[in-house]
């Protein structure tokens, strides 16, 4: 056994603290900013001590922003709702389509299977702006522009390849003998898929779902071009804080805090599924 000396323990503590400060400080600063007025934020020199205010949060939630130039309507809560619909919808559809597809690519060698899988992945290589202009024209022609369905469809470019390729790897890691054993025990193909394949790939499905949710949530450019005000997610909606009377740093900070909350909650929830898979010793190696 390797024994760590006191010196090593202290050094490790210091290094971990440095890393945490480096990575968490911006988030911490944003959290502080969200409880300050614009004037407090912009004072020089900046100070850690201030009278906390909830004005930023209340104005976001009520949708009324009081500035020097007068009152301003804010669509933030509506944007947040749009983000939830768009991200959840795209991830759900991607899971519904991607998980069975991933299983097919993992288990069956059919004609052009590798080519199809690679083509799906290649959607992620394409620069979004290159795709967007023709897509906008098509969507306007067929009436999908500025609709949830159209946006969710385009979001599949982000979420589907990710889910397909991550989950495929997990399916490939499941020994086919385990599935065979279940079928020989007398269960149908569909039941085997639901009771054996899906549960064993669950850590992968959770990871892929979470990652693609984050990517969908953080997407900016698709929504910027394809959605108008009433369908905009928070990423695009945040532009509204750049107002004629200045940049509303306090509201931006509060908006950031609110908008990372769902992703953070989801990550914490998915964590137990992510870890679960690591401890399953399926087949003797």
């Amino acid at each position: 056994m390797h024994h760590t000396t006191t010196g090593e323990k202290i050094l490790r503590g210091v290094l971990i603290t440095l890393a945490l400060v480096f990575f968490l400080f911006p988030i911490f600063w944003i959290l502080l900013m969200s409880f300050q007025t614009n004037a407090q934020i912009l004072r020089i020199p900046p100070s850690l001590f201030f009278e906390p205010t909830l004005i930023n949060y209340t104005s976001l939630i009520t949708g009324e922003l009081q500035t020097a130039a007068g009152s301003l309507k804010l669509e933030f809560m509506h944007n947040l709702w749009n983000s939830v619909i768009l991200s959840t919808g795209s991830v759900l559809i991607s899971l519904l389509l991607g998980v069975p597809a991933a299983y097919a690519f993992a288990r069956y060698k059919f004609r052009f299977s590798e080519d199809i899988a690679f083509t799906l992945l290649s959607f992620k290589f394409a620069p979004p702006l290159l795709v967007l202009l023709p897509l906008t024209l098509y969507f306007q022609a067929i009436g999908l522009a500025n609709t949830y369905i159209g946006l969710i469809w385009v979001y599949q470019l982000i979420t589907l390849p990710l889910i397909l390729w991550i989950v495929r790897g997990y399916f490939e890691d499941i020994s086919p003998d385990i599935e065979h054993a279940y079928r020989i025990a007398g269960h149908s193909w569909a039941k085997t898929f639901m009771k054996i394949s899906i549960p064993l790939a669950r850590p992968g499905i959770a990871a892929a779902g979470l990652l693609s949710f984050i990517f969908a949530w953080n997407n900016f450019v698709f929504a910027l071009v394809l959605a108008s005000a009433d369908k905009q997610p928070v990423t695009v909606g945040a532009l509204a804080f750049v107002t004629a009377s200045g940049i509303q740093y306090g509201q931006i900070a509060a908006a950031v805090v609110i908008s990372i909350t769902p992703t953070l909650a989801l990550a914490l929830f998915a964590q137990r599924y992510l870890v679960e898979g690591l401890s399953l010793g399926a087949v003797k190696g």
Partner: peptide, 20 residues
């Protein structure tokens, strides 16, 4: 005849137990 309808029992070399 599908595997589930063949009414055979099988023990695998690698055991193939359902890990979950």
């Amino acid at each position: 005849v599908a595997p589930e309808n063949r009414a055979v029992g099988m023990a695998f070399q690698n055991f193939a137990l359902f890990p979950h």
